Structures are given as C-alpha cells and as structure tokens.
Simulated assay, not measured.
Amino acid sequence: MTHPAAAIELRDVEIRFETTTLQFDCTIATGGIVAVAGASGSGKSTLFHLVAGLEDPDRGEVRILGRNVTTLAPSERPVSMIFQENNLFAHLDVATNVGLGISPALRLTPADREKIAHALSRVGLEGFEQRLPPTLSGGERQRVALARALVRHRPVLLLDEPFAALDPGMRAGMRALLGELHAEEGNTILMITHHPEDVKALADRVLFLDRGRIIAHDTLDRFLERRDNAAIDRFLGNE
C-alpha cells in the first residue's frame, strides 16, 4: 500500500548498462528538499532520469504521488527538471523561454503572459521579458530556468547541479531564492550537488549514492554526523 505522504517511490528499480547495473529502492516524503549526493558516476543523474521519465527501468516501479508512472512519458509526469546548463533557447527572449513551461507550442493567453511576468518578478527578473539569454549572466539564466519551472506548478522539482556554474556569491543568492520559493510552493525538491555547503544550507534530508546504490537516506543532522563510510567522509571532508 502506498503511503499518502510519499512524493516519490522507487520500488526495486534496476537499470542495466553495458558494464554496470544500478539499483534504487527508496521512498521520499512530500514537501521537503532532498540533496542527492555522491561521487561522479555514482548514479545521481540516472536516478533523476528515471524519476523524470528520460530513462526506463529494466525492472521495478517508479511511483509519484501514489501513481505508477513507470510507463508514462516525461510530459505526462508531475515533474519539472532544471539542468545544470539550464536549457534555454538562445534565440528566444526570456518571456518566451518561460512561456514554454506553460505551452510548448507557445499558445499563450494574456493570463499566461501575466503568469510569466509574475514568475520573473518572483525570481528577481522583473523587466527582463525581452532580453535574450546570451545577454544574461549565468545566475540570471538559472533564474529564468527557475521561473519556467515555477509557471508549470509541478509538485516535484528536480534540480541537476543548478548552481554549478555560479560563483560563491551567486550560489548563496540562488540558494536563498530557492529556499524562499520552496517555502511558498510547498513542492518536493530533489537537488543533485557536489557541494556540502549546498546540502547544509538547503536540505532536510540527504540521499547519498555510491556505485549505483543508495547507501544513505538520512535526515540532514544524521548525515552530517556519519563517520561510517569512506565515500561520505570524502564528500564531507572528514578525512
């Protein structure tokens, strides 16, 4: 029986590649911010792709908000995803890029245009509607991507290293913005990061992956106290 508080369930999920097999089994409650950490190649992006529907498992079941979505296309899942490279179209202005979150065909009503303006205002980009992405800073482009996710109002948001290209000052500002928006939206956020400071500043819980397995699924406090695994020690700098 599915627990009503579960945002995401990976039930005995297995995905096979040429040289390795990844296995995931976990339940993520609704409404929190979960950091997904681990060394490069540990399976973090694959886990995201399974939740988003960008890859299909060879075995097992993916459930979101109690519904089996294993065979659903990405567009049919209640999920938004922001990639490290933010996936903006360079030849389209900011408002149009955000509008793609409402209608991929860009059939936008006046009410939709108001939603776009409101979302841009919420991420600190009021008046940027006509700007083109190449004229923006890295932090501004990530805020456009966040605005696009906001107008979709999906209950699950996946962030794949959203601050990777930002300098420390911009990282801190984006973390603060994300925390504020999460408090307003009440959505469930999973965030891939290689930075312990992102985990400490934002996360309620931590999923830690090592060689295609989830080796820790802890509250933040419990995770920070761990001294029982070399990969976690390396990540936290405890060595």
Rank of each mutant, 00 (worst) to 15 (best):
D221C: 07
I64C: 02
P134A: 09
G169S: 15
V62T: 04
R122L: 06
I232Y: 14
L209K: 06
G212D: 06
G43Q: 01
P74W: 11
S137M: 05
R213Y: 15
G99C: 05
L100E: 08
E161G: 03
L88C: 04
T20F: 00
D228Q: 15
E14V: 14
A183W: 02
R11P: 05
E197V: 07
T20C: 00
F208M: 10
L22H: 00
E76G: 08
R122E: 03
G99Y: 02
V199E: 04
D56R: 14
A29K: 01
R77A: 13
G124L: 10
G66I: 05
V34M: 04
L190F: 09
G43M: 03
A105I: 03
R59L: 04
D228H: 13
T109W: 09
T70R: 13
L146F: 09
P196S: 01
L100M: 14
H3P: 02
D218E: 06
A183L: 07
N238V: 13
P74S: 08
F48E: 00
V98E: 01
I102R: 10
S75N: 13
F235G: 01
G99H: 05
D56T: 12
N68I: 01
L136F: 10
G139M: 09
I82Q: 02
A230Q: 14
F48Q: 00
N86W: 05
A73G: 14
A164C: 08
E76R: 11
E14M: 14
A37I: 01
G53T: 05
P162K: 02
L50Y: 04
G38V: 00
F223G: 00
Q130E: 13
G179I: 15
N97Q: 06
D228A: 15
E76D: 10
R152C: 12
Q142T: 14
L88V: 09
A216C: 13
L65E: 04
G31K: 07
E239L: 11
D210N: 03
F83C: 00
G139W: 09
G173L: 08
R171P: 12
H153R: 15
N87S: 10
V199H: 06
A183K: 08
D160Y: 05
G173N: 08
E126W: 15
E114I: 12
G237H: 09
G124F: 12
A216Q: 14
A231V: 08
N86Y: 07
R11Q: 11
L224Q: 05
L50P: 03
E185Q: 13
S45F: 04
C26H: 12
F163K: 08
D25W: 03
M81L: 14
A164T: 10
E184M: 13
N238F: 15
I8D: 00
A37R: 03
E239F: 15
L166D: 05
L181Q: 09
N68K: 11
G60Y: 12
L190E: 04
A231K: 15
I15Y: 06
S45P: 07
V98S: 03
L202H: 05
L54E: 01
R143H: 08
D160K: 08
L159H: 05
R122V: 02
P4G: 03
E129L: 15
T188F: 02
